[in-house]
């Protein structure tokens, strides 16, 4: 009886095998993502400085959320995060799409060009940050030297001491690091578009711009939609670039929600408050992802 019960080859129980094979992955995800998430959620409702796993639970409170929503620092961090997401995502898409279209054409040295387009993606984030920190160094950096030589400015720009300049340094570093991902994804999408579509459009007399607008973009939309969500989430949660370049400064000009979470948790040891920021960030990410994925499905052929 029991042998027949465990017979996974039976058509009615074949899906059990699938669940069984998925079980280790689900257990792992539960352990490293779901459990910390619940711990974080629980901490966000406690007034707690440094958290200890085996410590008795503190009384339930909404103070962390009250403090968060009335804090100008939180709204500033939201604003900085949104600015970064919009600027970096848009620029990554413009550069990524442009370079993908370029290296999708046949020309001499295309392989090398593809390699250079993808190169920043292969460079570890911290190395990229160190390179850009040197390029934008306020006293001995390449960019100041170049600007002075070209007559763009007569005096040194303090890239990391001016709020606007610091924001753009962070954005440029992120764009450089992030556009190859868009490029690679788009290139894969471009190569899957049947040549017949373009040939038919050419017969109908469509211009290059019309072919791009009415064939390339709509067919690429599913790829672009997913890519956009992934890029946005990457910008949303990216920590190391900002931490190493500006540490959220000057004057919180580059303090995103992830930097604020880190500062509160490990800088000021306010774990409960930091958890509340983390939970709100998660909710914002989910909402943004749902909105973007919804748009993607509407835009498909």
């Amino acid at each position: 009886m029991s042998r027949r019960f465990l017979d996974l080859a039976r058509p009615s129980r074949r899906h059990w095998l699938g669940y069984l094979l998925l079980l280790p992955a689900i257990a792992l995800v539960a352990l490293i993502i779901v459990y910390p998430l619940f711990v974080s959620l629980d901490l966000s409702f406690q007034k707690i400085g440094m958290a200890t796993l085996n410590a008795p639970r503190k009384p339930f409170t909404l103070d962390n959320y009250r403090k968060l929503f009335s804090s100008p620092d939180f709204w500033n961090a939201c604003w900085v995060t949104i600015k970064l997401v919009v600027v970096v995502s848009a620029a990554c898409f413009a550069v990524g799409l442009g370079t993908a279209l370029l290296v999708n054409n046949r020309f001499k040295g295309r392989t090398l060009a593809r390699l250079f387009v993808a190169l920043p993606w292969a460079v570890p984030e911290v190395i990229a940050v160190v390179i850009f920190a040197w390029i934008f160094d306020s006293s001995f950096g390449l960019m100041n030297w170049l600007f002075i030589k070209l007559g763009v400015t007569s005096q040194m720009i303090n890239w990391f001491s001016e709020p606007t300049a610091a924001f753009w340094v962070v954005a440029i570093t992120m764009i450089w690091k992030g556009y190859p991902f868009v490029s690679i994804m788009t290139l894969a999408g471009l190569q899957s578009i049947p040549e017949d579509f373009y040939n038919a459009a050419k017969v109908d007399g469509a211009s290059a711009l019309q072919r791009f607008w009415y064939i390339t973009i709509p067919v690429l939309m599913p790829v672009l939609g997913v890519t956009l969500v992934l890029v946005m989430l990457w910008v949303f949660r990216d920590f190391s670039i900002i931490k190493v370049l500006t540490d959220g400064g000057p004057l919180k000009a580059t303090q995103t929600l992830s930097i604020m979470t880190y500062d509160q948790a490990f800088g000021f040891f306010n774990m409960g408050y930091a958890s509340a920021i983390g939970i709100v960030t998660l909710v914002l990410c989910v909402i943004a992802s749902l909105l973007m994925l919804g748009r993607k499905s509407q835009a498909m052929y």
């Binding site: 001491s161 400064g249 004057l251 000021f268």
Partner: peptide, 18 residues
């Protein structure tokens, strides 16, 4: 509160300069 205090002093001093 030293970490929070020192961060505040740093920001206000930076604001004074900027």
């Amino acid at each position: 509160q030293f970490n929070e205090f020192s961060k505040m002093i740093q920001e206000e001093a930076q604001r004074m300069i900027i």
